[in-house]
């Protein structure tokens, strides 16, 4: 009987793997497991097997049955994969609504991500500010010539105004935080501007500052180079030059080579070959003194840049007003 089973099994295996379609397979199945099928008949004959062998034969038959059934199923599935019914994956369907972030938020979070890796936290401050925090404490006393670079929007002259830069958060942070700290701020700022395609009375700045014993111009340069290379690309050229800002000493201007003309000079860079990207420097000793620090005992750096221009470049938006007036069509 054992031989009979084995031979039936081998024969069936050959037949199943040789079958070409479902019909053939169905015939094989009937031949094996049908009312008069081979395996059915063998099962019927088990009762004639002597008692001592019956259990062993039973196990063998069951295994055979299982193997053949699995084979039949596998073979059937393989037909399914080879022969398929016509199906259209291009059919348009209603979409689930996906929300998207505002371009300015996207740029802010990308930048924040880079600075986080360098140990920076994030902070913010009030937009309705006082002259004290916006100017005085920043080494910008009244009648300072640099004040004319920033025409301020006043709520109550001379003290209450809309912050003209995020540096006001720097003064508030130096006042409130305990060094060492590294912080970035991204937020709305306001200046008196005749609103047109390239100027708006509300704009965004991205600012950072750090206060820690041992910080140097070399650290500032390293920080800004790391940021500029990470954000604007490793192949961009960077110019790190001396520039005056009342809030810093020594002061720094950082430019990138113009990506439109590759430094040759074009309309975008006004023929300079460079795009001014940010202002920076070591926090001015007068500011440190304003908060009771001794400039030789602790040092800090600060940097700031306008965000809107960067957002506009990144998202190919030509008119600055489009950023905040509902012109944006989200994908």
């Amino acid at each position: 009987m054992q031989e009979e089973i084995m031979s039936a099994k081998n024969q069936a295996i050959a037949q199943i793997s040789g079958a070409h379609d479902n019909e053939e397979l169905e015939q094989i199945r009937i031949d094996l497991f049908g009312r008069n099928g081979k395996i059915t008949n063998i099962l019927r004959g088990v009762k004639n097997v002597p008692q001592d062998q019956r259990q062993q034969i039973g196990i063998l038959i069951n295994e055979t049955k299982k193997t053949l059934e699995n084979m039949l199923l596998d073979q059937k599935n393989s037909f399914k994969e080879n022969v398929r019914e016509w199906f259209d994956p291009t059919i348009p369907v209603p979409l689930v609504k996906i929300g998207n972030l505002h371009p300015t938020s996207v740029v802010i979070s990308e930048m924040v991500e880079i600075f986080k890796h360098m140990g920076f936290s994030i902070t913010e401050g009030p937009e309705i500010e006082t002259d004290h925090y916006n100017f005085e404490l920043l080494n910008l006393p009244k009648d300072h010539p640099a004040r004319s670079l920033q025409d301020v929007l006043y709520i109550e002259e001379p003290e209450t105004l809309l912050r003209s830069h995020t540096s006001s958060v720097e003064t508030r942070s130096i006042e409130n935080l305990k060094p060492p700290f590294r912080v970035v701020v991204a937020g709305k700022c306001y200046r008196f501007e005749n609103v047109n395609a390239s100027n708006n009375a509300m704009f965004y700045q991205f600012q950072g500052f750090a206060l820690q014993k041992g910080l140097s111009l070399s650290d500032l340069k390293g920080t800004l180079f790391h940021f500029a290379k990470s954000y604007f690309g490793k192949d961009r050229k960077i110019r790190f030059r001396c520039k005056y800002y009342p809030e810093v000493e020594p002061g720094v201007g950082l430019d990138l080579n113009c990506q439109f003309c590759n430094g040759k000079g074009c309309a975008v860079c006004k023929g300079r070959g460079w795009i001014e990207m940010l202002g920076a420097g070591m926090i001015h000793p007068n500011i440190l003194k304003n908060f009771g620090y001794k400039p030789k005992e602790i040092t800090g750096f600060a940097f700031g840049m306008g965000l809107d221009r960067i957002v506009m470049d990144r998202f190919k938006i030509k008119d600055i007003r489009s950023l905040y007036n509902g012109d944006i069509k989200y994908s």
Binding site: R182, G214, S216, S218, D219, K221, G222, T223, H226
Partner: peptide, 8 residues
């Protein structure tokens, strides 16, 4: 001035 990545 050598750029120095913050190491403090």
């Amino acid at each position: 001035i050598t750029p120095h990545v913050l190491s403090l």
